[in-house]
Design a binder for these strands. Sequence first.
RNA 1: GGGCCGUUAGCUCAAUUGGCAGAGCAACUGACUCUUAAUCAGUAGGUUGAAGGUUCGAUUCCUUCACGGCUCACCA
Length: 499
Amino acid sequence: MENQTNLLEQRRHKLAELKRLGYDPYPHKFDYTHTIGQIRTELEAFNHDELQEKKVTVRVCGRIMSLRPQGKAGFMDISDGEHRIQVYVRKDTVGPENFELFQLFDLGDIIGAEGPVFRTRTNELTVAVTKVHHLSKNLLPLPEKWHGLTDVETRFRQRYVDLIVNPDVRSVFVKRSKIIREIRNFLDDRGYLEVETPVLQTIAGGALARPFRTHHNALDIELYLRIALELYLKRLIVGGISRVYELSRIFRNEGVSTHHNPEFTMLEFYQAYSDYRDLMDLSQELITSLAEKITGSRQVKFQEHILNFDSWQRFSMKEAIFRFWPDSAPKPNEEDFLSVKKLRTLAASIHAHYELTDGPGKLLATLFETVAEDHLIQPTIIYDYPAEVSPLSKRKADDPTTVERFELYIAGMEIANAYSELNDPAEQKARFEEQLNARGRGDEEAHDMDADYVRALSYGMPPTAGEGIGIDRLTMVLTDSISIRDVILFPLLRPEQVE
RNA sequence: GGGCCGUUAGCUCAAUUGGCAGAGCAACUGACUCUUAAUCAGUAGGUUGAAGGUUCGAUUCCUUCACGGCUCACCA
């Protein structure tokens, strides 16, 4: 701390020195003629002699990332966050007064520089400075230049520092932005309307999860932060917006892990007159085209794997259980899936955790998650889920225990969840009542009754298919990120003590 | 919430069996007008995450706490 205090004092002293010499320590603007990136794209192709001939003079600005003074001259690398360029300051070129200003510069300061662009003896594209400007002071030192900043806690708490010194971090978030833009383009091109629905809700529905609670003072009512977008979007399908989507933040009051952040970004889209089979094809098209647009290839590196988006697999949930069942446990039969007792035995045989209140559908889903999920590295669609764990999905015509639902797995993670929407208000009401019973048995994540949603369905909702895609996890897949915190700029952490 | 691991200078890391807390970079002073991990000479910088305990002596052993990582549970 002493050291940092000393350094702060030193830097504040330099700031005072700037003032004493008549400079505004925090000037209001700097008119630049080129960004560093523009200089790179426009002039990178030219050699020393060509640059001498062209005499391109620029005004650029950025943060000093490297400072190499050399007596009566000096070099700096300045960065605009994305690109870097070297600038060369000579006392006999800028004059004694401006050189005095240069000598007050510190690593991390924001500066402006003007002058012609040339190439040094070592062929480095460089601004031969005729005048430097001080634009803002760095009072706290930047992390070391070649190990950079690796302490993850500091990286997440002070993401601004992470972004300054770790260029790869920026590129993840540039890709994230591009993913979101491409998704919007994809859906807009297909006639979907983007809408915004309430974040504050009196019933947090559309998913099985625990919500955050809050309170509205003027109305004196308890409210929840939404856990899904689903029920409002389907109300809009009833209202005749037959292709609709929302891409926004949702909130779940659950644990934090490498795959979970309490607030995360969800895309949900709904398409009338379609069923889940249509969305399988659409998802495959969307995700494959995103992979290609973001990474430049349909073969995408993820950790030690190459994800091949040219070769998608599709299994029913039961097929996946058989296929990935471990050799160490006795193989199940199709009939075993009908008996709670047999299902519990199977779960125990693979050390899966279950509750005594779990019905056959929940147990089946548990078996699937335990044996199959880790194996689903390549893009895989798992379809036909138990009705018991899918209170908003439509049953299969030939099997009332199963619903028309699928999930998309990539890199062992659940990326998307989609189904043919239940649009029979009487059955929806009955499903909500089943959920209320589960809630009565202590299941805090069971769905609450949403009477207005049932009323909306009673006006008639066309056959509809809907899907949710987790944007954070999709971004992980397409940026080779192992933790969700690497794709969220400010992931939730416990508060620190800042003086 | 449980288990395991971690926290030493601004950053990245050392420190033998419990025996004087160190290095590189950053910083400061000086030299240096084509350097780019600039170089050379010198200087300074520490409540070892916090609080207790054991001990002649604790970065090191013990307890509690804080924060983080991994993992399990929960979930997407």
